[in-house]
């Protein structure tokens, strides 16, 4: 399977998506707004997983950073009583960044199976710590988060205001990831998937390439965790659990590995799927994810984005060459 992202496809699909996400929500009922807001932070976390995947790096432990961001918020509220988004978003980003800077020292040496599983091990360590250090973390009960403020004005997690704030963060993340992927650092990341030997013989350390990308992914995870904490209003150790990491990977796979519109489509589809599945098949939700993943891997390696492109090609009557598998 080829890793590719048709960045030239961004403008049109991106403009349409942005327009829909900005204009439509005021006309939607509250529960859909809630699902959309969840899709926003899901998207941000998944961008981290997707970016790593561009270098052929799969992580089963990205919930580590998501939980780091979420608990950074939790502790801030618990000890400082601060609920200000303008402070907490940078804080969550910083927490994710620092965690990635530490864990990344180990991780930058590994690829493939080891990278995937070591990430999982680190996230399970955090899960264990969150569970056991209950006098700090609240244990299985977790921590209550309450309502955020934006520049001092209350912004409930299910409000339109909060949705637009999350959407703004999505815009910023999209810009950052887009520029990263078009930059030398982003290209070296993709080059890593192709040929590490050539990179080293170009005078560039592959470990640095991994480390930098890992920092970006961790930071995005932290931001996503902050947004999630206020949307859901409650944080629990399960935020660091493998199922959470598995869901990130699932969405990344749904929305084709790289790129921006793909994961957004994946995140939206995922949140709606989950909303219905948890209502009608609460015991079979993982099974559904598993089956969908299996089908994508075996029959549609491009994910939903490839399906979209095929439909678009049929409508506009030209092949954009997006089907590279």
């Amino acid at each position: 399977m080829t890793h590719w992202m048709d960045w030239r496809a961004l403008p049109r699909a991106g403009v349409v998506a942005a327009a829909l996400l900005i204009l439509v929500p005021p006309f939607l009922p509250g529960w859909i707004l809630f699902v959309l807001t969840k899709a926003m932070f899901m998207f941000i976390a998944v961008m981290g997983v997707s970016v790593l995947l561009r270098g052929g790096l799969l992580t089963f432990g990205h919930a580590l950073y998501y939980a780091t961001g979420a608990y950074a918020v939790g502790f801030c509220i618990k000890w400082l009583g601060v609920r200000e988004l303008l402070f907490l978003i940078p804080l969550g980003a910083l927490a994710g960044f620092i965690m990635a800077a530490l864990v990344g020292i180990v991780m930058a040496r590994y690829r493939e199976v080891f990278f995937a599983m070591l990430n999982l091990a680190f996230s399970m360590m955090l899960f264990g710590a969150l569970l056991k250090l209950y006098w700090i973390t609240g244990g299985t009960d977790g921590l209550a988060i309450g309502t955020a403020t934006l520049a001092g004005i209350a912004l409930p997690g299910d409000s339109y205001g909060y949705y637009y704030f999350a959407l703004t963060m999505v815009g910023i993340v999209t810009l950052v990831v887009y520029r990263f992927m078009a930059s030398p650092a982003g290209y070296f990341l993709r080059a890593m998937y192709d040929n590490e030997i050539r990179i080293e013989y170009s005078g560039v350390a592959v470990r640095q390439v991994v480390y930098r990308t890992y920092l970006l992914a961790g930071t995005l995870g932290g931001v996503a965790g902050v947004l999630a904490a206020f949307t859901i209003g409650h944080i629990v150790p399960e935020d660091a659990f493998w199922i959470q990491s598995g869901e990130f990977v699932f969405v990344a796979l749904l929305g084709v590995f790289g790129g921006v519109p793909g994961p957004m489509l994946g995140a939206l589809v995922f949140e709606f799927l989950q909303t219905y599945a948890s209502k009608y098949f609460p015991l079979a939700w993982q099974m559904m994810m598993g089956i969908i993943m299996l089908l994508i891997i075996l029959f549609q390696p491009g994910g939903l984005w490839a399906i979209y492109q095929r439909i678009e090609a049929r409508i506009t009557g030209k092949d954009r060459g997006g089907d590279h598998h």
Binding site: L58, F60, V113, A116, G246, V249, L253, Q286, M287, M289, G290, I291, M293, L294, I297, L298
Partner: peptide, 10 residues
């Protein structure tokens, strides 16, 4: 990895 992971979920 993803394929065997999806089998695990199932």
């Amino acid at each position: 990895l993803l394929l065997t992971f999806s089998i695990l979920l199932i």
